[in-house]
Design a protein around this nucleic acid. Structure first.
Length: 819
DNA sequence: AGTACATCCATTTTT
DNA sequence: TGGATGTACT
């Protein structure tokens, strides 16, 4: 992939044709963003304005013009996926030179730094990383130990508070100083926080927030360490800057401070080399502070709830006096109609810097609007429309359906399955959150970082060895008394005062862990090959009896668990292939920092379903934004939060701007939630879109919440289209209904479509259908089978219904009978 | 240790 | 409504 660089690093100097090539096709603003040189540059990059291109070319140009060595560049993104993409695109431009650069997420960059410096402050380099599940589990125990639940603290509440504080770089002590400590609940919280931090340290572990926060502390506490990185990184680039929280912001600030000390110190405290000594003095060696480039769009800030501070970007110019600001407003993604809608919506956010996206790809199609009676009706519209687009030549992989909350996916899934539309839910159940995977990970952690009690405790009785809570406590007490770790206590089964059976079980576990440790972390200190990770994993799972227990089980789910574990072993093998020098510690870090959203984007040939949050950074030819209702988008809970509605508007904006050519906005008049059917109102954001941009297939005014449609004739000029309440819009209902075949009920007939599509899963067994058969469908009426495709449980009937048009149905589950 | 019942609770989640 | 979690039985 990197072997065919477009431009060889040494091919030419400034002003060369290779330079031109790097700047080719850029608009003036983009060009400015690529070529500007100065201490601080803010690139305000509207949606679809080509920011990745700008960023990668900026890097390439720095290298190409010899303004920087690869090792002097630090490019930071938020997701592994974004980092991977950037690395790839830089490699396309500069070839192998891209290897010396740090292009990574905040978190992995910090892990790299912390690994080198961990010994400085009481950790060892094989520390483990606690994901949020791990920290919640730890907090669960601590909340109980401290009886904090009596004060109404739940583990997750404590977790989110701690996380917020860490994002603000406050530790327990710092918080205690400014908190009202006469409040017993506050004291309790501080107690738990303190203990949590102590436990992490004892386990030689960092949680996600610590990775950033502790790196900042490290830099502040050890200026010479900070200096060594400041000397190294001369060009720092940060993507999605609007999503940085205070800790991340501080990290960037630390790195862009002028170098304080004089003596170059290319080595970390442990003697590890930080940068390759270059034979030639590095360009910019005498510069005092690194140059900083940040890219972002405050209109796409949708993570305030996780501590992202939009002010980091809005106040950039104040933070970095003399900063240059470049505005990228030309959008290369969407048609003008889509952009106009997006602009109109986001324009309602006050206190925002004006920005107007424009496109030169013409107006394009109008936005399609649809109001369903129920969420199922809405889903049917989506399914029908997807099929229509499909027939028009759009591949499934170029279509996406967005929603605000995960629970909305259910109705969509039901209908999509029935309509035989292949789909994939992005960011759904996380692979690494499955119990069996966490178990396997715990085995590895127990080997890699024996100080991590949590991991050892987790595997103590997995598979079942008869080691219960009592024994676990005994081991813990023994460890405490002997001043050894929980892991080491397993070696002394005979000293625990437990029965012989238990002793044997404990010793067996100890032996398995020891065997794997021999392989993975040999006492000789020699580094085992990366392939040994997969081997060690297999040893652990096999010899611990984990596999055996699953194989012996007759729980059908255990079969799936086995498959998942096989997949996990395959992940370990992949890792070895991609990281020939990787160790078990590297593997664990990678796994902890990688989300499966990263690799699932290859959703080849299927429609993607996801929340609007997940959609950020992605784009599709056709986009469906569903559930455009009050209380959903904007979500009702956001109403009470300061800045809430504005963030919701940005979220909607993000959703809209994902679409290249076709945008569909849909809603339902009634929505079953929490077991109750409630009447939904169209979202206020809909009214913010100019009426002429939307082609309503069925407008809110056409549908009432009792399940009928108004007569078209009556509806044609009717004030008060909202169905309930508002009286001031001609937005909806003005248009008489669409250009579809008017004789058939629009969409699926809502009167015949009660909101219980759900029903029981129907099983038509071996119902045989062939072309020419006539069938009756519960919802669509009678029709003629035109073809049958697929096999077994996935056989699909292509049916031409007499009134409902052409549909694809999964024969096995469709509510049909052969006539 | 495993099951059955009860209870609570329902945004978003790059790492 | 349903799912996740906790408690009380067997």
């Amino acid at each position: 992939m990197t072997d065919a660089p477009l431009i060889l690093p040494d091919s030419a100097g400034p002003g060369s044709s290779a330079d031109d090539e790097l700047l080719a096709g850029l608009n003036p603003q983009q060009r400015e963003a690529v070529t500007y040189r100065g201490d601080a540059l803010l690139i305000v990059a509207g949606a679809g304005s080509g920011k990745t291109s700008v960023l990668t070319r900026r890097i390439a140009l720095l290298l190409h013009r010899r303004e920087a060595w690869p090792s002097q560049i630090l490019a930071i993104t938020f997701t592994n996926k974004a980092a991977g993409e950037m690395r790839e695109r830089v490699a396309e431009l500069v070839g192998d030179a891209s290897r010396g650069m740090w292009i990574s997420t905040f978190h992995s960059a910090c892990v790299r730094i912390l690994r080198r410096e961990a010994e400085q402050f009481g950790f060892t380099r094989n520390f483990t990383i606690y994901d949020s599940g791990d920290s919640r589990a730890l907090l669960k125990r601590l909340v109980k130990d401290h009886e904090a639940d009596a004060y109404g603290f739940t583990p997750s509440a404590v977790q989110s508070r701690i996380s917020k504080l860490k994002n603000e770089l406050l530790d327990a002590e710092g918080y205690a100083r400014q908190a009202n400590m006469s409040d017993p609940a506050e004291r309790k919280f501080v107690e738990v926080f303190t203990d949590y931090q102590r436990s992490l340290q004892k386990a030689n572990a960092f949680d996600f927030d610590d990775l950033i926060g502790q790196t900042v502390f490290l830099f502040r506490a050890f200026p010479q360490v900070a200096d060594s990185y400041r000397r190294r990184f001369r060009h720092i680039l940060v993507d999605e800057y609007q999503d940085t929280n205070h800790a991340q912001y501080s990290l960037i600030r630390e790195l862009t401070k002028p170098v304080a000390g004089k003596a170059p110190e290319p080595y970390a405290a442990d003697g590890m080399m930080i940068f390759e000594p270059d034979p030639t003095p590095a360009p910019g060696e005498d510069a005092t502070a690194a140059s900083l480039t940040v890219v972002g769009d405050s209109d796409q800030s949708i993570y305030a709830f996780r501590g992202a501070d939009i002010r980091n970007i809005t106040e950039f110019e104040r933070d970095f006096p003399g900063a240059k600001v470049v505005l990228l407003e030309q959008n290369y993604r969407s048609t003008q109609n889509i952009l106009s809608a997006a602009n109109a919506v986001i324009g309602n956010n006050f206190d925002r810097k004006a920005k107007n996206l424009w496109s030169d790809r013409g107006p394009g199609d109008k936005i399609v609007g649809f109001t369903g009676y129920s969420q199922h009706d809405e889903a049917q519209f989506v399914a029908d429309e997807i099929e229509e687009l499909r027939r028009a030549g759009y591949p499934y992989s170029e279509m996406a359906v967005f929603y605000r909350t995960n629970s909305q996916s259910r109705a969509l899934e039901e209908i999509l399955i029935r309509s035989a539309v292949p789909y994939k839910i992005m960011g759904g159940t996380k692979f690494y959150e499955r119990a069996e995977i966490k178990d396997a990970l715990a085995y590895l952690v127990a080997v890699a970082n024996p100080a991590d009690d949590m991991a050892v405790r987790r595997i103590l009785n997995r598979p079942r060895r008869g080691i219960g809570a009592v024994t676990e406590t005994a081991i813990g007490a023994f460890a405490e008394k002997q001043g050894i770790s929980f892991r080491d206590a397993l070696r002394h089964a005979d000293g625990l005062g437990v029965g012989p059976k238990l002793q044997a079980a404990i010793s067996r576990l100890d032996a398995v862990l020891a065997e794997a440790a021999d392989l993975l972390t040999p006492a000789s200190g020699e580094v085992p090959p990366a392939t040994s990770v997969a081997e060690g994993l297999k040893i652990l799972l096999e010899k611990s009896g984990y596999f055996e227990a699953l194989r012996a089980s007759r729980d059908p789910q255990d079969e799936a668990r086995l498959e998942n574990l096989d997949e996990f072993v395959a992940v370990a093998r992949d890792f070895a292939r991609n990281n020939p020098d990787g160790t078990i510690v590297d593997f664990l870090a990678e796994v902890a920092l990688v989300s499966d959203a990263d690799d699932l984007d290859d959703a080849s040939g299927v429609v993607s379903l996801m929340t609007m949050h997940t959609a950020k950074g992605l784009e599709y030819d056709a986009v469906f934004v569903t559930g455009v209702e009050e209380d959903l988008i904007p979500h009702r809970i956001s109403a009470g939060e300061p800045g809430g509605p504005q963030e919701e508007r940005r979220l909607f904006y993000v959703g809209i701007t994902r679409a290249r050519k076709r945008l569909h906005l849909s809603l339902a008049m009634t929505r079953a939630q929490f077991g109750e059917v409630s009447v939904a109102m169209p979202s206020r954001f809909l009214q913010e879109i100019p009426a002429e941009l939307i082609d309503w297939r069925q407008s809110p005014g056409d549908v009432n919440s009792r399940g009928g449609m108004r007569s078209r004739a009556l509806n044609a000029r009717r004030p008060g289209g909202w169905g309930s309440g508002s009286t001031k819009d001609d937005h909806f209902g003005v248009r008489a209904l669409p250009q579809r075949d008017r004789l058939t009920p629009l969409s699926t007939a809502m009167d015949r479509f009660p909101n219980k599509v759900t029903g029981k899963v129907r099983d038509n067994g071996d119902l045989e259908l062939a072309a020419g058969d006539r069938i009756r469908h519960d919802d669509f009426g009678e029709g003629r089978v035109e073809a049958v495709t697929g096999e077994g449980a996935k056989r699909i009937a292509h049916v031409q219904f007499d009134t409902a048009g052409r549909k694809k149905l999964l024969i096995k589950i469709a509510p049909i009978v052969k006539l």
